[in-house]
Design a protein around this nucleic acid. Structure first.
Lengths: 230, 230
DNA sequence: AGAAAAACATGACGCATATCATAAAAATTC
DNA sequence: GAATTTTTATGATATGCGTCATGTTTTTCT
């Protein structure tokens, strides 16, 4: 599979939980030194530039991780449940959030004390090794998106995102899209109007079907071809 | 400093060597299970898609790490000596190089057996923690470049790269650029002609001076302003 | 349920930037 | 050191895509 393909475009879905690798005592430590916070749909979980005193683990829900820009944001990933967020705060000398996070659905986020997290990394090499794997997967997917956004034109970029949402997030060819057209534009780095126009193109060509928020990918081979050709 | 600023644009320069954290026995292990390979200017160190059986450490030289595209490549980073390369090969289930690497100057690369590297990560938590920091810094810089490439127009993107080359790579306001205009275009995701035109604009405006390969940044405040305004 | 706000939609227009063509200068090669 | 290749340079043209304006539909709020 090529690096620039649609599977590398949104989010990193790491099937195995990193917490499986902790000892019972370490799990206990995480439990006592973390809190679970519930967020309603549309709420902000963390704000770019503010102080990061904890690592976040999305136990339930769907969120976007994004850079705030003027006037347009850039969505880095759409992240589903069972994923760590805010690992960059581990970086020594930087204790602020690199990005903002907000929810698409009601969500539950576990906030883990960053000192505890660092301690676990230093005392449990298997845990640290797992985190390295997670960071690496995230980097690899970031490169794929990099290529998509800088080297493909609008139709290719939107095809990438639709395929990736279908495969990685919703795991179905039909899904209800909680993202607005404006979100899709922040994801593909194009104008909202262009998203709307290209969605219509795809619909007119029988490649996808749209009914309000309901999206169905009809002609996957053509969508993949558009993705590949850029 | 804003995330999209020029300091986040090229390479990750990690001042401390990760190998300082190894025990004498572990250092010995790395020595016996690695080889030092010399490359001439312009040679390819590794090829995207080929099998990755080792982690690379650039002991001496200057290289570009890039995604191969058709017809244009995308340079992910310009990386100077004392940096690890190819860490993504650690990711379980992926033992191929995500990118290609080629040299700008004569270089020396230490190839470290990937199994030994994994062993060190698992047995030495401080080493693993350092690697996590390196990966995190790399990710943070990747996000900055993401923003620059997708949300700024040509002048801003080129200003970003010139400032970053000056600050992070050459650490001087005057330097001999081993990159061609085509390399700059692969870094900024624009056409080679646009690079040339904008360099001329900058020269005509007294912002930089160009003499063949020799570049001098004259008016840093204006260059920073162009970078900030995008 | 009705009002207000947000999201979706569509066309006209303008511009930033790529592409193409051509040529000069510099670097590399034998 | 002459020949070939690569790099730099510049102008003309084409176009992909954003911006703006305006209207409709859907969602949210009270």
């Amino acid at each position: 599979m090529p690096l620039s393909g649609p599977d590398t475009c949104v989010s990193f879905v790491y099937e195995l939980s990193c917490f499986d690798l902790l000892t019972p005592e370490e799990k206990e430590l995480v439990d006592t030194r973390s809190v679970l916070v519930n967020y309603k749909k549309g709420e902000i979980v963390c704000k770019q530039g503010s102080f990061a005193s904890h690592i976040m683990y999305l136990e339930k829900g769907l969120v976007k991780i994004y850079l705030e820009g003027n006037p347009k944001d850039l969505i880095l990933t759409i992240t589903p449940q069972k994923n760590l967020m805010g690992l960059q705060a581990l970086f020594e000398g930087n204790n602020t959030f690199l990005y903002s996070i907000s929810t698409y659905t009601d969500s539950a986020v576990r906030l883990i004390d960053i000192q505890i997290f660092k301690q676990l990394l230093k005392q449990n090499p298997h845990f640290a090794y797992r985190i390295i794997n997670i960071l690496n997967e995230s980097t690899a997917q970031s490169y794929g998106r990099f290529f998509s956004l800088t080297h493909k034109q609008l139709h290719g970029r939107l095809a990438d995102i639709l395929l990736c949402l279908s495969r990685k997030i919703f795991k179905a060819e039909s899904f209800d899209l909680p993202l607005t057209r404006s979100d899709l534009s922040d994801l593909t780095s194009m104008s909202t109007e262009s998203v709307i126009r290209i969605m219509k193109d795809f619909k007119d060509d029988g490649i996808i079907d749209i009914n309000n928020k309901a999206i169905t990918l009809i002609d996957l081979p053509r969508l993949e071809s558009i993705s590949a050709k850029g």
